[in-house]
Simulated assay, not measured.
Amino acid sequence: MIINGKNQKEIDVKSLREKFGIVSQKIFLFNDTIKNNIMYSSKEIREEKYKEILKKSELEKLIKKFPLKDNHMITNNGQNLSGGQKQLIAIARALAKGADVFIFDEATAHIDKEIKETIKRIIKEELKDKICFIITHDDDFDEIGDKILKLKYIEGDSISE
């Protein structure tokens, strides 16, 4: 497999894993600040890059609502955040990681229409030069996909298109 012009056989496994950013339906959040939850994947980011990530992920708007801004403490794996807020943190993590390939695995399940539209905009504008796989049960993202593969399960049969 070729990823951004490089044969994956020439890339060691650790380097290959660093190329992927995953935004899943259920993300794990540490009992720590929003900033530390974003930065744990890449401690070497400078403040200006971090601010750019907040803007691209639209977390900039979210943290303005909290008295402690990005020092707002996340508790109990994010029970004090909405599903959409958690997803934006997951996107910011992947951006901080500097991923080349993004996998959105049911990342828009159980979130409101506004956050879905935000995620769509992030994919269209901020990740336009990246490879994005969007795994979903609905067709909300069909309009932004270059290629769409719809799978249908037939009982007793293998998965087919």
Rank of each mutant, 00 (worst) to 15 (best):
E18Q: 15
G83C: 06
K43C: 05
I53C: 00
N77C: 11
V101M: 05
I144S: 03
C132Q: 03
K56Q: 11
Y50K: 09
Q8I: 09
K69N: 13
F133D: 08
A92H: 03
V23N: 00
I3W: 03
K152R: 13
I111E: 02
C132F: 02
E10W: 05
V13G: 11
N77I: 05
E114H: 11
E58H: 11
I91E: 00
K150M: 13
N4G: 12
D129G: 12
V101C: 06
I45N: 06
K97Y: 04
E10Y: 07
K49I: 11
T118M: 12
F104N: 01
K124Q: 13
I11Y: 04
P67G: 05
L62M: 08
A99W: 00
I27G: 14
K152L: 07
T136V: 07
I144T: 06
K43W: 05
A107R: 00
K19T: 09
E58D: 12
D129P: 10
I45L: 14
S41G: 15
A94G: 04
L54D: 00
D146E: 15
L95M: 12
I103V: 14
K14C: 07
D100C: 10
K56G: 04
L59Q: 01
K14M: 14
L62N: 07
I53E: 02
S41L: 13
V23K: 01
R17Q: 10
A92T: 01
K113T: 15
K19I: 06
I123G: 00
K128M: 11
E126Y: 08
L151T: 08
D140N: 14
R93G: 02
D157H: 15
E60P: 02
I53P: 00
I134Q: 00
H137R: 12
I89H: 04
K147I: 08
K86W: 02
S24C: 09
E58N: 07
A94Y: 00
L95Y: 02
K97M: 10
I91H: 01
S158Q: 12
K19H: 07
E161W: 09
N7W: 10
D112G: 10
L81W: 02
M39S: 14
K130D: 03
S41D: 10
H110W: 06
D139I: 13
M73Y: 08
Q8N: 11
L68S: 14
E117T: 12
E106H: 08
K97D: 02
L68C: 08
L151R: 13
F30T: 12
E106N: 05
L54K: 01
I123L: 05
G156I: 04
